[in-house]
Design a binder for these strands. Structure first.
Lengths: 218, 218
DNA sequence: AATAATACGTTGCATTTGCAACCAAAAGGA
DNA sequence: TCCTTTTGGTTGCAAATGCAACGTATTATT
């Protein structure tokens, strides 16, 4: 545990909370840590979960899969991130998304309800609650972004709105996206070959330049 | 104000909070109330907002509009609902969505940050914070649902996943959706005529029956 | 180094979709 | 009641897209 405490102190979840208080909260949340190999399933979409996860090391993706198996990456998860979809636990609904490790990963699980509903109305719990609020607010913004991309009437506009946001995010016209081609297609809810074709078209018209996951906007 | 207090006591935002304490919170949040005619703009997407709104009476829609003016209804807002997108205030980002009244409406504005950051770490504030958490969690679920629809590879599947969720929501194969045809098209990010055509096709194949905004799944 | 596996681009084709134009029915106003 | 406005269905057409199949370059494995 100790070796990961700096991941936790660095995470938004425990922002403004001291190390010894973090331990206190973890205990309250009946925490445990589990390791996963690459491509292992961390949560399955039909699970109803009590605890939710924080990625201590490695990488993972939140994936939505439809009836026929079309996969759609909702978000990538990086170190320190928590799986905000898991807020469905507050409503005790099934997840309806799966979480899959994309690298060897180590995950901390805690029972949020335990913490939120602990009768101790201490200052720490208060800060913790606000931190969660902040995280899920950000999640909402990200989901809204995604809806913005998906709402475009054609693939070209989906691509361009996504790329221009990525550029903005990186503060540079030249940037790397965190997806390979198939993942990008899944994220934009389209077909890989259709995506390749359209990227190619856009490049021919001189709007962008790209190679693999590196892009330059013109 | 008094005539709306029951709207507030009935809302999730003030759940488990007594009437006199609601007043206390409202004061802390520097509240005000404003009226809007049908089709008036309540928030514009470029606004950066300090206060956010709770619909006391009437109806409104959260609308995303792209560069070329294609409108996309993100959600409808009903009595007691608050505009969760406005959680961007926690990040002080521009809204990037607009809120428009679809009926004559009356809206209560409060400054959430004032309340959350008030040093009084009273029990009431604590409950209030949890209520907000609950609301935005639900919002996240709704956004996830929407992403699920929009991620379908073709219009038919968008329609069918939307309708089957609506049926589930109403607990009945026969139900009314809260959209007219144009709004439904905007919500599913497609063209109205394309939507009509596909609905018609699906009906011909006997999967659904419909008339205006009333649907029956087979 | 040889081989296998993966990632990405390309292309043909059938289907879907956006768009525009038009018509009919229903609702609202004068 | 008559006229206007709104709402929704239909259709033709061009363009976009999903899908499958295939080729090549890159990366991983032995």
């Amino acid at each position: 545990m100790k070796k990961y405490i700096n991941v936790l102190t660095g995470s938004i979840l425990f922002k403004n909370i001291k190390e010894e208080q973090i331990n206190e909260i973890l205990k309250l949340g009946d925490f445990n840590i589990k390791e996963y190999d690459k491509n292992e399933c961390i949560y399955h979409k039909e699970d109803t979960v009590k605890k939710f996860g924080i990625l201590l090391s490695g990488k993972a993706s939140i994936i939505k899969e439809d009836y026929w198996g079309n996969k759609n990456i909702v978000t990538n998860i990086n170190k320190g991130d928590l799986f905000a979809e898991i807020f469905s636990i507050l409503y005790e609904e099934p997840l309806n998304v799966s979480v899959v490790s994309t690298e060897n990963s180590r995950i901390l699980f805690i029972n949020i309800s335990n913490i939120l509903n602990s009768n101790k109305s201490s200052e720490v719990i208060n800060i913790f609650t606000k931190n969660i609020l902040r995280i899920i607010s950000k999640k909402t913004l990200i989901l809204n972004k995604k809806i913005e991309y998906l709402s475009k009437r054609n693939l070209r506009d989906k691509i361009l709105s996504f790329l221009s946001d990525q550029a903005q995010l990186n503060g540079n016209k030249s940037f790397y996206i965190p997806f390979d081609r198939q993942q990008m297609a899944d994220f934009l809810a389209t077909d890989r070959s259709a995506l390749s074709r359209e990227l190619s078209n856009i490049q021919k018209e001189g709007l962008i330049e790209y190679n693999k996951n590196h892009f330059i906007l013109k």
